Amino acid sequence: MTGTAPLGRRAAVEFVGTGALVAVVVGSGIQATKLSQDVGVQLLANSLATVFGLGVLITLLGPVSGAHLNPAVTLAAWWTGRRDGEGPNLCEVFAYLPAQILGAIGGAVLADAMFAEPLVRWSTHDRWAPHLWLGEVVATAGLILLIFGLARVGRAHFAPVAVASYIGAAYWFTSSTSFANPAVTVGRAFTDTFAGIAPVSTLPFVAAQLLGLAVGVALVAVLFGRPAVAAAEDVVVPHGEHHPAVAARRAPPPLFLPEG
């Protein structure tokens, strides 16, 4: 499907948006550790900043690129829309994914620079445990179910609030603090601060997120079935087109992702 914005611009938006998201996550984590020694307070500050930042980014960037900001979301959009042409095509997928990953790395470096930390220092925060991987499966599956479930019931316009709220909750109810985003996971390996993850821990986290992606897509199919007639309202589709919903046409939402 072709959006109103050129692919290069949409990829640039995914780069900047994912970078901004990681800068929020990493920067607020650094700030929190400077202001309090209480880990609970640190996590609360980190999660609140992420919730607010994520909501703003989805609202601002959704009309241009869909604000996926997450390879799991992009892949899910491609898979669920591949038959009816509603999702991104493979060319768009291959433009979005590198932009998201490079943006995430850039966001971590930017956050470190703002707080006078070493620009690149591999994280020593080991997150290697099966219960953390399970947390990532749950967090990612829930995110995919929420985003595409909203689309199936014609409530895509709630995505900025709903997705940000879900990520804020998942910070606390998942053992992994809900990374739920392969690009952000890679980016956070580049900073040895509160939000970092050791490089050796990234591969199982990403594998768990991809498994969560598959589980989430399956849950969407089981719980919502085939795309129904969309509600007669203006919607934002993944590449930024605004138009009234029409019969038998699915309305994919502006998306994120998230991350914890």
Rank of each mutant, 00 (worst) to 15 (best):
F173G: 04
T33Q: 14
V13H: 07
A198N: 07
T59E: 07
S28R: 01
A104N: 00
Q31E: 08
A251N: 01
F190R: 00
A99Q: 05
G17D: 05
A159K: 00
S65A: 08
A228Q: 14
V73R: 04
L132S: 06
V163G: 08
A232T: 11
A207G: 10
R226F: 05
D192C: 11
L132A: 10
T50Y: 07
P98R: 10
L44Q: 07
A113G: 14
T174V: 09
H125G: 05
V235G: 10
A99R: 03
H125F: 03
T191D: 07
A208S: 13
V138H: 06
P160A: 10
K34G: 14
V41D: 07
L44R: 03
L119F: 13
A164H: 03
W122M: 13
G260R: 08
P244K: 11
H243L: 14
R226T: 13
G240S: 09
S123A: 12
V13A: 15
E86A: 14
A232M: 09
V24A: 07
F148Q: 02
A251S: 13
F148P: 01
V161A: 12
N70W: 02
A95H: 03
E117K: 13
D192M: 05
R226Q: 12
S176Y: 08
T80W: 07
A164S: 13
H68V: 06
A189S: 14
